[in-house]
Simulated scan of single mutants.
Amino acid sequence: MATKAPVTCHVLDTQTGKPAANVQVTLSKMDNTGASFSSLAQGITDADGRCTNIMEPQALPVGTYKMTFATKPYFEASNRETFFPFVEIIFDLKYPEQHYHIPLLLSAFSYTTYRGS
């Protein structure tokens, strides 16, 4: 049995140089036809910009997943505009025994991501 959520994330606001707290995060899985995603879990980033408890520790099946970050409300809360109302990161989970960490480096008009550890 896994000891932590199989997928976690971390959001950093590169404009302010600080963690992005209170960003809603949704984890979804692509259906077998590849036509749509179904929501599996939701969470909110903590004061350190992390969402480590988006779901209970468990193994996830191999498949294509999507992490959606609701960025517009985050920027609106600090009276900033953004070009991206949300950010979707789609990734293949090929090794269910491994942990998948999705960092998001965010500013109002750009973002980048990578597979973290």
Rank of each mutant, 00 (worst) to 15 (best):
80 R>C: 05
8 T>W: 02
117 S>R: 04
30 M>H: 03
42 Q>E: 11
13 D>I: 04
21 A>H: 02
67 M>F: 06
87 V>C: 11
19 P>G: 07
83 F>S: 15
70 A>Q: 14
69 F>D: 02
68 T>G: 04
59 A>G: 10
47 A>I: 12
42 Q>I: 13
84 F>T: 03
92 D>A: 12
34 G>D: 06
7 V>A: 03
36 S>E: 03
4 K>A: 10
83 F>T: 12
32 N>V: 13
31 D>R: 14
12 L>W: 12
114 Y>P: 08
102 I>H: 01
111 Y>S: 13
91 F>G: 01
106 L>D: 01
12 L>N: 09
105 L>E: 09
103 P>R: 03
15 Q>L: 15
52 T>N: 14
9 C>V: 11
38 S>W: 06
4 K>F: 03
30 M>Q: 15
90 I>K: 10
82 T>Y: 05
88 E>Y: 05
8 T>H: 02
66 K>R: 14
88 E>C: 15
106 L>H: 01
82 T>F: 08
46 D>A: 05
104 L>C: 09
24 Q>S: 11
101 H>W: 08
80 R>K: 15
108 A>H: 10
114 Y>N: 10
96 P>N: 08
47 A>K: 06
6 P>E: 02
100 Y>T: 15
87 V>N: 02
104 L>K: 04
79 N>G: 02
61 P>G: 07
60 L>S: 02
58 Q>R: 15
102 I>L: 13
28 S>T: 09
45 T>H: 06
61 P>M: 07
115 R>I: 06
105 L>F: 15
85 P>W: 05
93 L>C: 10
64 T>H: 03
97 E>G: 03
35 A>D: 12
115 R>T: 14
59 A>V: 13
32 N>K: 15
2 A>S: 14
29 K>Y: 06
7 V>I: 15
30 M>V: 07
113 T>H: 08
71 T>K: 03
75 F>K: 00
32 N>R: 14
96 P>G: 05
71 T>M: 05
43 G>A: 02
54 I>R: 00
22 N>C: 14
50 R>E: 13
6 P>Q: 04
90 I>A: 07
51 C>T: 08
85 P>A: 14
